[in-house]
Structures are given as structure tokens and as C-alpha cells.
Amino acid sequence: SEIVKHAEEALERGEFVRIEHNGRVIEIRNEEALEELRRWVEK
């Protein structure tokens, strides 16, 4: 997914991403959060 790709690229640069999706906000700061995002987006 485009969202996950964006988050992965930001993590590689040492940045973090805040994503709003279906009214929820998730902050991607590490691999664990990235995995959570993947599960969340796939639903």
C-alpha cells in the first residue's frame, strides 16, 4: 500500500510519520509500529 511504503521510506531516513486513517491517528516511529500499520491497512 502507498501508506505503508511512505512510512517505510520515512523510517529508513530516520523520520517518523503520523498517519490519519478512518478517523484514527497512528504514529510510525519503529518497525513495531510499521507492522501495526500493515495489519491496520489490510483490514
Rank of each mutant, 00 (worst) to 15 (best):
I28S: 00
I26K: 01
I3S: 05
R29F: 11
E27N: 06
E2C: 15
R24C: 15
K43C: 14
R38I: 08
K5M: 07
E20F: 11
I3T: 06
S1F: 13
E36M: 11
E36Y: 08
I28D: 00
R13L: 08
L11Q: 03
V41S: 02
L34M: 06
E32I: 09
R13V: 04
V17C: 14
R24Q: 10
A7K: 01
H6N: 10
V17T: 08
V25D: 02
E2Y: 09
S1G: 10
S1W: 15
L11C: 09
A7Q: 01
I3Y: 05
I28L: 04
E2M: 13
K5Y: 04
E2V: 11
K43N: 12
E8H: 09
I26M: 08
E31Q: 14
I3R: 05
V4A: 03
I3W: 09
V17D: 05
E2W: 14
H6Y: 15
G23F: 03
R24H: 11
A10V: 05
K43P: 07
R24D: 06
R18A: 12
N22C: 15
H6F: 15
E9H: 08
H6C: 15
E20N: 05
I3P: 03
N30Q: 02
K5N: 05
E31N: 12
H6R: 15
L11P: 03
R24V: 12
E9L: 09
I26G: 00
E15H: 07
G14P: 05
R39E: 09
E20D: 06
E32Y: 08
G14M: 02
E8G: 08
V17W: 04
E36I: 11
A33Q: 14
E32M: 10
L37Q: 00
E15W: 05
L37F: 08
V41M: 11
H6I: 15
R24L: 13
G14L: 04
R24I: 13
E20S: 08
R39D: 08
E12H: 15
E27A: 06
E31G: 10
K43L: 14
N30I: 04
L37H: 00
G14D: 07
E32F: 08
I19T: 02
I3L: 14
E2H: 11
H6Q: 14
E35C: 10
N30K: 02
I26P: 00
L34V: 06
E9I: 09
E8L: 13
E31P: 11
E9P: 01
A7H: 01
V41Q: 04
V4G: 02
I26D: 00
E42H: 04
A10N: 03
I28N: 00
L37W: 02
I19E: 01
V17A: 07
I26Q: 02
F16N: 12
E20V: 13
R18P: 05
H21Y: 15
S1L: 13
E42W: 03
V4W: 09
F16H: 14
E32W: 08
E42Q: 08
L37T: 00
R39T: 06
E36H: 09
W40S: 05
G23H: 06
W40G: 03
N30Y: 05
A33I: 07
R39G: 08
V4F: 08
V4L: 14
I19M: 05
E36L: 10
E8D: 03
R38H: 04
R24M: 13
I3Q: 06
N22W: 12
H6A: 14
V17H: 06
E35F: 01
R38C: 07
E27D: 10
R18E: 12
G23W: 01
E35G: 07
R39I: 09
A10C: 14
V17P: 14
N22A: 11
I19G: 00
V41G: 02
G14K: 04
E32S: 09
E15S: 07
R38K: 12
R18S: 14
H21Q: 05
I19N: 00
E35P: 01
E2A: 13
K5P: 01
R29W: 12
K43D: 13
H6T: 11
V4Q: 03
I26A: 01
I3G: 03
R29C: 14
H6V: 12
E32P: 04
E15D: 14
V25R: 04
A33Y: 04
N22F: 13
E32H: 10
S1N: 12
A7Y: 04
E12P: 03
L11I: 08
E8N: 06
R38M: 07
S1C: 15
I28Y: 00
E20W: 10
G23S: 03
L34D: 01
A10R: 06
K5W: 04
L11K: 03
N22S: 08
E2Q: 13
N22R: 11
I19W: 07
H21F: 15
E42G: 08
R24G: 06
E20G: 03
A33V: 05
A33M: 13
N22H: 14
I28H: 00
R29V: 13
I26T: 03
E42M: 06
A10K: 07
R29G: 08
I26R: 02
S1A: 13
E42N: 07
H6G: 08
R13P: 02
R24A: 07
N22L: 13
E20K: 05
A10I: 05
K43Q: 14
A33L: 09
E36K: 10
W40D: 04
V41P: 01
W40M: 10
L11V: 07
I28Q: 00
R13D: 06
E36P: 00
N30W: 07
I19P: 01
A33K: 06
V25G: 03
V17Y: 09
R18T: 15
E27F: 10
R29Q: 08
E35Q: 10
G14N: 06
H21M: 15
R39H: 11
V41I: 12
R38T: 03
E12T: 12
E31M: 14
F16A: 13
E20M: 10
K5V: 05
F16S: 14
V25I: 13
V25E: 05
V4Y: 07
V41A: 07
L34C: 01
F16T: 15
E27R: 02
E12V: 11
E36C: 13
G14I: 00
G14F: 03
I19C: 09
R29E: 07
E32Q: 12
A10H: 08
E31S: 12
A10P: 02
R13K: 13
H21D: 03
E9W: 02
G23Q: 02
G14Q: 04
F16K: 11
A7M: 04
A7E: 01
R29K: 11
R29Y: 11
G23L: 02
V4E: 01
H6P: 02
R39P: 00
L37S: 00
N30P: 03
E35D: 12
E15Y: 04
I28W: 00
V17I: 14
E27G: 01
E9V: 07
E15F: 04
H21A: 08
E35R: 08
I28C: 06
L37M: 02
L34H: 00
R39Q: 11
R39S: 09
A10T: 04
I28T: 00
I26S: 01
I19Y: 08
L34G: 00
R18H: 11
N22K: 11
I26F: 15
E15A: 05
V41W: 08
V4P: 02
E9Y: 02
L37E: 01
G23V: 00
I19S: 01
K5A: 08
W40K: 03
R13C: 12
H6D: 06
I19L: 07
K5D: 03
E12L: 15
E2D: 14
L11W: 11
H21I: 15
E15M: 04
E12I: 12
K43M: 14
N30T: 12
A10W: 05
R18F: 11
E8I: 13
W40R: 04
W40F: 08
V17F: 08
R29M: 11
R18G: 05
I26W: 10
V41D: 02
H21E: 03
E2F: 10
E15G: 10
E27S: 05
E27I: 14
R38S: 03
A33F: 05
R24S: 08
V25L: 08
F16L: 13
V25S: 07
R29S: 10
E36V: 09
E36Q: 11
E31H: 14
L34K: 01
E35S: 08
S1R: 14
H21N: 05
E31V: 14
N22Q: 10
G23A: 02
K5L: 07
R24E: 09
I3A: 07
H21S: 06
E31I: 14
L11R: 03
A7V: 09
V17G: 04
I26V: 07
E32D: 11
G14Y: 02
G14T: 00
E20I: 12
L34I: 07
V25Q: 05
E12S: 15
E42P: 02
I28V: 12
R24F: 14
E35M: 08
E2R: 12
R38F: 04
G23E: 02
N30D: 13
E15R: 04
R13T: 07
E8P: 01
S1K: 13
E12K: 15
V4I: 14
G14A: 01
W40Y: 07
N22T: 04
I3K: 12
E15L: 02
E31W: 15
I3D: 03
L37G: 00
F16E: 10
G23N: 05
I28P: 00
R29L: 12
